[in-house]
Simulated scan of single mutants.
Amino acid sequence: MNNSPVVKEYSKDDQAQVVDLILHIQQQEYNIQITKDDQPDLFTIEDFYQTGSGNFWVALYDDKIVGTISLLDIGNHQVALRKMFVDKEYRGGKFKTSSLLLNTAIKWAREKSIKEVYLGTTPQFLAAHRFYEKNGFTGIGLKDLPENFPVLQVDKKFYKYLVD
């Protein structure tokens, strides 16, 4: 058995596990009042994320999806990092799931000649804030986002990453 998850591109077979993982983290762990109906993109991942310079990945551990990440093509050689979620049991240094997912997305962005990665997150995701900052993301204000960045209602904290 491999000690770390394997990251692969999303396929339709992954949908049920992706939805379950994301909703569990949002609703149960962080008590965010958001439903699957509030996130129609979770049911059209191929059409929504896997177009242009965008993509969606899952982290698998023994055939169980333990993490997700996506890049949404917002044009102008820019992407929005979305849907980064990791099962509580697979966070941290033991499995390095978050780093595996983020490194996969950044490598993809570099290969697609993306210049900047933007993301929005909620104030309660403090560990996520530290993770992004540790990995080269810089905090920015709402006014510093590109006009085509899709701001979500729950997002109050924003970051930018310059792809080299």
Results as ranks from 00 to 15, higher is better:
Lys107Glu: 14
Leu101Glu: 11
Gly139Pro: 01
Lys107Thr: 15
Tyr118Cys: 08
Phe137Leu: 01
Arg110Leu: 08
Tyr118Arg: 10
Gln153His: 14
Val151Asp: 02
Ile140Met: 05
Pro150Met: 05
Asn103Glu: 14
Ile106Asp: 07
Ser98Lys: 02
Asp144Met: 06
Glu147Asn: 13
Asn148Pro: 02
Glu147Asp: 13
Leu119Pro: 00
Gln153Cys: 00
Lys115Ser: 13
Arg130Phe: 03
Val117Tyr: 00
Leu152Glu: 14
Leu101Phe: 11
Lys143Cys: 04
Arg130His: 10
Glu147Arg: 14
Lys107Asp: 14
Glu133Tyr: 03
Ser98Pro: 02
Phe137Val: 00
Ile106Met: 09
Gln124Thr: 07
Lys115Gln: 11
Lys94Tyr: 13
Glu133Ser: 11
Leu145Gln: 09
Leu102Ala: 12
Arg110Cys: 08
Thr97Glu: 11
Thr97Gly: 07
Ala127Lys: 10
Thr138Arg: 07
Gly120Ile: 07
Asp155Ile: 00
Asn135Tyr: 15
Gly120Phe: 09
Pro123His: 11
Glu116Asn: 15
Leu101Arg: 10
Phe158Pro: 04
Ile114Phe: 04
Arg130Ala: 13
Ala105Arg: 04
Val154Gln: 09
Thr122Leu: 00
Thr121Lys: 11
Asn148Leu: 01
Ile140Cys: 00
Ile140Gly: 04
Thr97Pro: 03
Leu119Thr: 12
Thr104Gly: 05
Asp144Ala: 11
Thr104Trp: 09
His129Tyr: 08
Ile106Leu: 15
Thr138Val: 04
Phe149Tyr: 15
Gly136Pro: 05
Gly120Arg: 01
Thr104Glu: 12
Thr104Ala: 03
Val117Asn: 02
Lys115Glu: 12
Phe95Ser: 00
Glu133Arg: 14
Ile140Ala: 09
Gly139Gln: 15
Lys134Asn: 14
Ala128Thr: 08
Thr97Trp: 10
Val154Gly: 00
Gln124Phe: 09
His129Cys: 10
Pro150Ala: 03
Gly136Ala: 04
Pro123Met: 13
Thr121Glu: 09
Arg110Thr: 14
Gly141Leu: 10
Thr122Phe: 02
Thr122Met: 12
Phe95His: 15
Glu111Pro: 10
Tyr118Pro: 06
Lys96Gln: 15
Leu126Glu: 14
Phe125Ile: 03
Leu152Thr: 02
Glu147Ala: 15
Pro146Asp: 01
Pro123Ile: 05
Thr138Ala: 06
Lys156Ala: 13
Phe137Asp: 01
Lys112Trp: 05
Gly120Trp: 05
Phe95Ala: 08
Leu102Tyr: 08
Lys94Glu: 12
Tyr132Gly: 08
Asn148Cys: 00
Gly120Glu: 10
Glu111Asp: 15
Leu119Phe: 08
Lys96Ile: 01
Lys115Val: 02
Leu142Ile: 15
Phe95Thr: 02
Ala109Glu: 10
Asn148Ile: 02
Leu142Met: 12
Arg130Cys: 05
Leu101Lys: 11
Lys96Leu: 14
Lys134Arg: 15
Ala128Leu: 07
Ser98Ile: 03
Pro146Asn: 03
Gly141Arg: 01
Asn103Ile: 07
Pro146Ala: 04
Asn135Val: 11
Lys94Val: 12
Tyr132Asp: 15
Ile114Thr: 09
Ser99Leu: 12
Ile106Tyr: 03
Gly141Asp: 04
Thr121Ile: 06
Glu116Val: 03
Pro146Val: 05
Val117Met: 10
